[in-house]
């Protein structure tokens, strides 16, 4: 799998590695997918990178590759900003080859990372017709998570026709941030768009939402989909090639 802009792949890894330290990559002719839960089984990430999004891609037989995302992140940090990246696994090999090339082809770096034998548990994510779909700038969402974490461990997300409200309370007191829907969309990247069938009010652990925000550099906009008593879906699109979707189980009154 070759990417002209290797930095896209580095951003994907940076976006996942805090939530899941290691994961099994499923490779097929259609591309690369990954599904993994965090160690507490509260959140789940689902990654799709379609073959046509790569400069070149070939996969002769389906493979499951157990990879340490922490190690891969270290290797990818050695990559130059404009380097291209090729990822390769040879038949019957127990390692993955990560090759980087500088833009003017005067530097070539090769790394081999040992593959891991991982016990991965696969979940079926049901198709959900969410009550609310919010789009907002990724940077805004990151900031809201950071700001809400000052006040408490949990954030309550409430949507109405007018907008979306994030609130948190704790020992210090309480705080809230309300975003109203953008009425005059000039720049789509900066817009807040709320599609609502039903109002929702759901509580989530801010710590996980903040971890999802590590994937924010992938896309200028984030999508949040919500339904009562259903995990939140937080989506970052990966250019033309796919997406990273994070799911977070809500906190529910017993």
């Amino acid at each position: 799998a070759r990417l002209l802009h290797g930095s896209i792949f580095a951003k994907v890894i940076e976006g996942l590695r805090e939530l899941v330290n290691e994961a099994t990559w499923e490779c097929s002719g259609n591309g690369i997918t990954l599904q993994a839960m965090d160690s507490s089984h509260v959140a789940l990430v689902s990654l799709v990178m379609r073959s046509e999004g790569f400069e070149s891609y070939r996969c002769d037989r389906n493979m499951s590759l157990g990879i340490s995302l922490v190690s891969m992140s270290k290797v990818l940090k050695t990559m130059g900003k404009d380097d291209s990246l090729t990822i390769r696994v040879n038949d019957d090999s127990d390692s993955i080859i990560i090759a980087m090339e500088s833009q003017n082809q005067d530097k070539f770096a090769d790394y081999e990372l040992r593959l891991m034998d991982l016990d991965s548990e696969h979940l079926g994510i049901p198709d959900t017709d969410y009550s609310c779909a919010i789009k907002m700038p990724s940077s805004e969402f990151s900031r809201i998570c950071r700001d809400m974490s000052i006040m408490g461990d949990s954030v309550l997300i409430c949507t109405t026709k007018e907008g979306v409200k994030f609130s948190a309370k704790g020992d210090l007191g309480q705080g809230s941030i309300r975003l109203v829907q953008t009425t005059n969309i000039e720049k789509e990247e900066e817009a807040v768009i709320i599609e609502m069938k039903e109002a929702v009010a759901l509580t989530f652990a801010v710590r996980y939402l903040s971890m999802f925000c590590k994937a924010a550099p992938l896309s200028p906009q984030v999508g949040l989909s919500l339904s009562e008593d259903t995990p939140l879906m937080c989506e970052f699109k990966i250019a033309e090639m796919g997406h990273v979707r994070f799911y977070l189980a809500p906190k529910i009154e017993d």
């Binding site: 509260v42 548990e121 979940l123 799911y247 189980a249």
Partner: peptide, 14 residues
């Protein structure tokens, strides 16, 4: 107090 649910509570195992 709201209790944190597990993701496996919502998504079935394959």
């Amino acid at each position: 107090m709201a209790q944190q649910k597990s993701i496996t509570f919502f998504f079935r195992k394959k």
